[in-house]
């Protein structure tokens, strides 16, 4: 049992909280701008590398680099929106999707040009951990990642629930034409969405880098789980996205738990973790496209 918890369930929750940071942005953007943002994973990568530069330049811990990385994430998000998405506000969503696919590759190539293609890590050596109970060890980094993710999610929640702009964001995600009729500054809401999506993605990238390692395709490889979480939770439903992310994270880790079959063979080779997210997503899209929390369907 402890093995299940230490090596599968808990890491699943960690992974889930990292996904949640990305999936909130995907869900909000899908709800407000009406398109699947294929470059969202690469925003994560960008955030991770900005932090990497801070870490190597000033010899600080990646946690200290979070503010700089958030600033970078916001800056690049707003720039991308202005140059590559804004001209298509009135176009068919397909054009936006193609554009975001292009942005994804452009972002990745920029990262490859400036930071190279090798794997990088924030720290080397064994990561310290503490004993919580007998046979149950938790890496200290995992505690920080979880605390960090949950505080950011909570802050986002407060923003969406209590501020005028946050409510307007949810309103626009519900119905953008009505939002316009109501007098909501839709462009301002879009900018705010990028600020939130961009900063959460940047932090998600850092946490992913701490948990694993950095590579130019690290974010792109998370795209399926991010979409799966957003769709599972219901498009345009940030709270749903959080729940969806947790489910996906735990399901991915559990898929390689050997205890189920009793023969010490994993249910599924760990190499196919992403397949789990995809499977859940396709089943959801086909049988319940509005997600678990009644999201929008386009």
């Amino acid at each position: 049992m402890t093995e299940l918890f230490t090596y599968y369930l808990f890491p699943g929750l960690i992974l889930g909280s990292i996904y949640a940071l990305g999936a909130i942005g995907v869900s909000l953007l899908f709800g407000i701008l009406r398109f699947a943002h294929f470059a969202h994973g690469d925003l994560m990568t960008f955030g991770a590398y900005v932090a990497f530069s801070m870490v190597t330049l000033f010899n600080i811990s990646p946690y200290m680099a979070i503010p700089a990385s958030i600033v970078g994430g916001i800056g690049i998000s707003i720039l991308i929106d202005k140059v590559c998405y804004r001209p298509f506000r009135q176009s068919k969503t397909i054009v936006l999707v193609i554009s975001s696919l292009g942005v994804s590759l452009m972002l990745r190539s920029i990262i490859q040009i400036f930071w190279g293609v090798d794997y990088e890590v924030y720290f080397s050596g064994i990561q310290p951990s503490i004993d919580v109970a007998e046979d149950f060890r938790i890496k200290i980094h995992h505690i920080w990642i979880m605390l960090g993710s949950f505080s950011l999610i909570f802050l986002t929640h407060l923003f969406l629930k209590n501020t005028k702009l946050g409510k307007a964001m949810r309103a626009m995600s519900d119905d953008s034409e009505l939002a316009l009729i109501t007098g909501i500054h839709t462009e301002r809401v879009i900018t705010a969405t990028w600020i939130i999506g961009g900063s959460l993605a940047a932090v998600a990238g850092i946490f992913l880098g701490i948990d694993t390692q950095l590579s130019p395709s690290m974010g792109w490889d998370q795209l399926l789980p991010l979409f799966a979480a957003a769709i599972l939770g219901g498009i345009g439903r940030p709270y749903g996205a959080i729940a969806g992310a947790m489910i996906i994270g735990v399901a991915e880790e559990l898929s390689s738990y050997p205890g189920f079959l009793g023969e010490n063979a994993p249910l599924l080779s760990p190499a196919y973790k992403t397949g789990v997210a995809f499977f859940i997503m396709v089943v959801m899209l086909i049988f319940k496209p509005t997600g678990l929390f009644r999201g929008r369907q386009f």
């Binding site: 005028k164 949810r170 034409e177 009505l178 939002a179 009729i181 007098g183």
Partner: peptide, 25 residues
């Protein structure tokens, strides 16, 4: 002020939040 025939409320917002949005400006 314009009230369209259909899709004239924000369904996931609360009643109070809908009214807040009406007063956005």
């Amino acid at each position: 002020s314009y009230v369209p025939q259909e899709r004239n409320i924000f369904p996931t917002l609360t009643v109070k939040e809908n009214l807040d949005m009406g007063a956005y400006l």
